[in-house]
């Protein structure tokens, strides 16, 4: 029982457009997986289905044996590509909210990271810049001792210095019982932290390999391979 996420024939259509088209996928515990693909390839759709924010058209996802629901939400830590923080709370209040609802949330960890990134816990979310809000969200998500982290574009909106810190956080957070799936198109930046890569193209998986396999077989970096596969 080492599988944390399993997908069978998962499809999702929006009207006549197919966002996901028959995805079959198994992800093991202890892996850091890069979900890579150009814009509109279905990365966000996939992650949202895993969080029960979208309903699949057909097929199913199982996380730790459960279809998305209350049981999976207890063990999945999700970073959306949107800012979901309401404006009127203070950073400390939103930390309190996470502590209230997630049994695996570790507030000390959150306050520690806030300090490292120079964010005042007493500031109101309204007053924070977009990039700072993204950092706060990531801190909240990474302060959970979850079994599956689903990170949608975790480094898209932050500066390169914070980017390094965030990637360090993701690696140092590593434990063999947890898997991390992160979607991005900034491949060069994250290549060094990944174990496996999945290339998504028009809702289908075109490649699913470990980073070592990619390097051994093609002699290329993931970034170079990506540019080749998705050449416009």
């Amino acid at each position: 029982m080492n599988t944390i996420l399993e997908c069978k024939n998962l499809s999702k259509s929006f009207g006549s457009t197919k966002a996901l088209d028959g995805i079959n996928l198994t992800i093991e515990k202890g892996r850091i997986v890069g979900l890579l693909g150009p814009n509109g390839s279905g990365k966000t759709t996939f992650i949202k289905i895993c969080n029960e924010l979208l309903t699949p058209t057909s097929g199913e996802v199982r996380i730790n044996g459960f279809t998305p629901g209350v049981e999976t939400k207890k063990i999945v830590s999700y970073l959306p590509e949107k800012t979901y923080l309401n404006d009127w709370m203070k950073v400390s209040q939103i930390i309190r909210l996470f502590q209230d609802f997630y049994a695996d949330f570790i507030p000390e960890k959150a306050y520690d990271m806030l300090k490292r990134l120079n964010i005042d816990p007493n500031s109101r979310l309204k007053t924070l810049s977009k990039g700072t809000k993204e950092k706060v969200q990531l801190i909240l998500v990474m302060s959970r001792d979850a079994q599956l982290y689903l990170l949608d574009e975790p480094i898209g909106g932050v500066d390169p210095a914070a980017r390094d810190y965030i990637l360090d956080t993701i690696i140092s957070n590593y434990n063999e019982n947890a898997a991390v799936i992160l979607s991005t198109h900034l491949i060069a930046d994250i290549e060094k932290v990944l174990d496996d890569i999945i290339f998504l193209k028009e809702g289908q998986i075109v490649l699913n390999k470990t980073v070592d396999e990619v390097r051994d077989e093609s002699g290329k970096s993931v970034d170079a391979l990506f540019r080749e596969v998705f050449k416009c």
Binding site: E52, V70, K73, Y84, L85
Partner: peptide
């Protein structure tokens, strides 16, 4: 706003029925 807007991303990923 809080369920079907952007805040819904937070509300609906809480482990709550």
């Amino acid at each position: 706003k809080s369920l079907l807007g952007d805040e819904g991303y937070l509300m609906f990923t809480l482990p709550v029925q």
